[in-house]
């Protein structure tokens, strides 16, 4: 596996705090702005970057991320350009882990082997592919692990103890616990339920367990981060980008800065999380 992911989680462990994992859509609203956002994330406090790969039919996403994908595609984003985004980011940052997240078809059409080679070459550390459950591991998961790219699986409230071992079997990097049955951007569930679920998963794996879906504010991040090894924020960031655009959908003067401000706030949340847990 690429070392960046494990190094980052080891460092966070010694700091005694959970990771802040930030999602944005590659190419939203255009390539250059998107690259600016990506570069601003680590300085604002993001520990791991989830780089969204736009897809025309995002079946597990709510309206905010659907629209982000449409903006990116309209701006000419392709899978090749999303890889290019990562390559440019790596010119100045070789430490922050990058996880590409999206749906399988664009990767399948690009060609699985060619995609994995190119992803490795530009410094991708992991993949999250929503529509590839363990039953489909031969498609991309096993080839990715063989090449040394982490395959991060989603576990959900419907993943019971009987099924968890199958879900965790070929998972590496971290486990992404989806806090609810639903699409991205729904309301955050009760943090106590989430911590119960995180502990349940930890009973089955030594991998870090990160939680996403519904985390929008520093307070959410703090509450979820008390039990989880990482907190994923996506829709809030994507919505911040959408809100900063001009009327015709172009990047506004504050687009990059406003995302950085939001992420700085979320970062204070994860940094306060374990203080709560220790109380």
């Amino acid at each position: 596996m690429t070392a960046r992911m494990d190094n980052r989680f080891a460092a966070l462990k010694s700091e005694g705090r959970p990771a802040l994992i930030t999602y944005f859509m590659g190419g939203d609203p255009d390539f250059d702005t998107s690259l600016g956002i990506m570069k601003a994330l680590p300085a604002a406090g993001a520990d791991i970057i989830e780089l969204g790969m736009p897809f025309s039919d995002p079946m597990a996403d709510g309206p905010a991320i659907q629209l982000a994908g449409q903006r990116a595609l309209k701006g000419g984003q392709t899978l090749a350009r999303t890889l290019e985004l990562a390559r440019k980011f790596r010119e100045s940052d070789d430490e922050t882990p990058i996880v590409m997240m999206g749906y399988y078809n664009p990767i399948y059409i690009y060609g699985v082997d060619r995609f994995l080679d190119d992803a490795l070459a530009v410094g991708i550390d992991g993949l999250i592919v929503v529509d590839l459950p363990p039953e489909m591991d031969d498609e991309l998961c096993i080839p990715a692990l063989k090449k040394g790219i982490n395959f991060i699986r989603l576990a959900t409230p419907t993943t019971d103890d009987k099924r968890l071992p199958a879900v965790l079997k070929n998972t590496s990097g971290f486990v992404y616990y989806v806090s609810m049955t639903g699409i991205t951007g729904s309301a955050l569930p009760d943090p106590s339920l989430v911590s119960g679920a995180v502990n349940r998963i930890k009973g089955h794996t030594s991998l870090p367990v990160c939680v996403g879906f519904g985390v929008k504010t520093a307070d959410h991040a703090k509450a979820i981060g008390a039990a989880a090894d990482g907190v994923v924020v996506g829709t809030a960031i994507v919505a911040q980008i959408a809100g900063s655009l001009t009327k015709d959908g172009k990047a506004g003067p504050d687009t990059i800065a406003s995302v950085a401000t939001l992420v700085r706030g979320l970062a204070t949340g994860v940094r306060a999380a374990r203080l709560v847990a220790a109380e």
């Binding site: 079946m59 597990a60 459950p133 489909m136 699986r153 409230p157 419907t158 993943t159 879900v167």
Partner: peptide, 20 residues
């Protein structure tokens, strides 16, 4: 048994739906 007709078919769905 995996729902395949040759290379076609399969179960390409989100984990939430898999148990169902």
């Amino acid at each position: 048994e995996d729902g395949r007709f040759g290379i076609f078919g399969g179960r390409f769905v989100a984990e939430t739906l898999m148990p169902l």
